[in-house]
Nucleic acid binder design. Structure first.
Lengths: 225, 225
DNA sequence: TGGACTGTTAATGCAGTGTTAATATTTACA
DNA sequence: TGTAAATATTAACACTGCATTAACAGTCCA
């Protein structure tokens, strides 16, 4: 699920700092210290994005980019450079660089640019997907996805399931659910909720590792191991 | 075949120069002078790229970008700004900007960046021919083409269909549709929209793989296949 | 002024959702 | 083990939102 980034930078300190920062953001970073190593690495593993220093021993960033493009024409890349020369920027852009950053740069800005580039190359799924066992709840589209079956949910069904997933493996009190989803805690709304719990169990019956368990007179736990 | 670019810039001189330059490069440029005009323009025609000034009267570039993203989440955009403030850049990038250029800038560099962005997002959805099932919507000419039949649409019919096609297989909320196409979310406008949905279904009835499905109290999904 | 066209409003019937009811099952505790 | 309360499950219900058709009002243009 994590995006893989190839970082090629001959300044070891800068490279380490950058790598740490990117890993904090949840990316998987492979670090190399010159163009040759970078190319070798790219041949072995496929990456979602490349960050390339321009000035490097053995093989400069531009040559590396050309070589990488032959292997995978679609992979996006970002150039790093100390020089703010226009000619340099143009060379990089002509190679199809997705971005061009001059040192010194702000790490958080770089991360944002990376996010945008990766989001763009992803599919148009702007909806957040909630995971539970072998299921995926696409809340925006009120859809519960399973291996070979998509189950459409009603609004309340989806709201309740989302609430339970967000509190996965935690005991949620009946009063909490009712007040959050129905607005008030009332005996008859409680009966209504029973029906919804029952329906959710039916939808989730295909995954043995999932269960909605009741704690008598207290609440429910959506268990997932 | 030409890429269409929406240029929104309140500095008339700069805008004109930029427009000329882009047209020399073979782009079709629509020029507007503030955010409101820009949004109106975007509602009418679909663009491949937007270039937005940040500081503008009536509606600033960031607000415009947000509004545009609601209509078409995939369209790439570039911000122009006189300020080189970090905070400003971050705001733009958070909105998903594909690029962020500070004035004064080199026109040839801008053009290169535009080329890269358009190459990357190269999809068969250039121009205003929108595909859905066995149908083809020619938005400019308000014509819905089918194998042996051409159906002329009214403006609102075409707008609604275009909106649904751009969000194909996604659930679009009723409030989103009303705010984007009617300007406000209101009960009676909702009734009006029902009628349009009904008419679209009638036009699309010849393709069994297409359907406009309703999610009660939430919105619609234009399903293809 | 009158017809053609577009978008809105009105009218009617239907269908899906959330609720209630009916019945069965489980749990807690004497 | 027996009893009452809580919960599960299924079916039936009522109400709201939607679909569809038709009628209406405003606009454009001859």
């Amino acid at each position: 699920m994590n995006h893989k980034i190839l970082l090629v930078e001959d300044d070891i300190d800068l490279g380490n700092v950058l790598k740490q920062y990117l890993e904090l953001e949840g990316y998987e970073v492979s670090q190399r210290y010159n163009g040759k190593e970078g190319l070798e690495c790219f041949k072995e593993v496929s990456f979602d994005l490349c960050i390339l220093d321009v000035m490097m021993p053995e093989m400069d960033g531009f040559s590396l980019a050309k070589a990488i493009k032959i292997i995978d024409i679609k992979v996006p890349f970002i150039f790093l450079t100390a020089k703010a020369l226009k000619e340099d920027r143009l060379t990089g852009l002509k190679l199809g660089a997705d971005d061009y950053i001059t040192k010194p740069f702000e790490a958080d800005e770089l991360v944002l640019r990376i996010k945008n580039i990766l989001n763009r190359s992803e599919k148009p799924k702007n909806s957040d997907l909630l995971e539970i066992g072998e299921y995926l709840l696409d809340f925006e589209n009120l859809k519960l996805k399973h291996t070979n079956e998509d189950q459409f949910l009603t609004l309340k069904e989806a709201e309740l399931l989302k609430f339970l997933i967000l509190h996965k493996n935690q005991l949620v009190k009946i009063t909490t659910i009712l007040e959050s989803l129905w607005g008030e805690d009332d005996y008859f709304l409680g009966r209504s909720m029973n029906v919804f719990i029952s329906r959710l169990r039916k939808y989730l019956r295909f995954s043995p590792q999932i269960s909605i368990e009741n704690i008598r007179a207290v609440g429910y736990i959506l268990k997932d191991q």
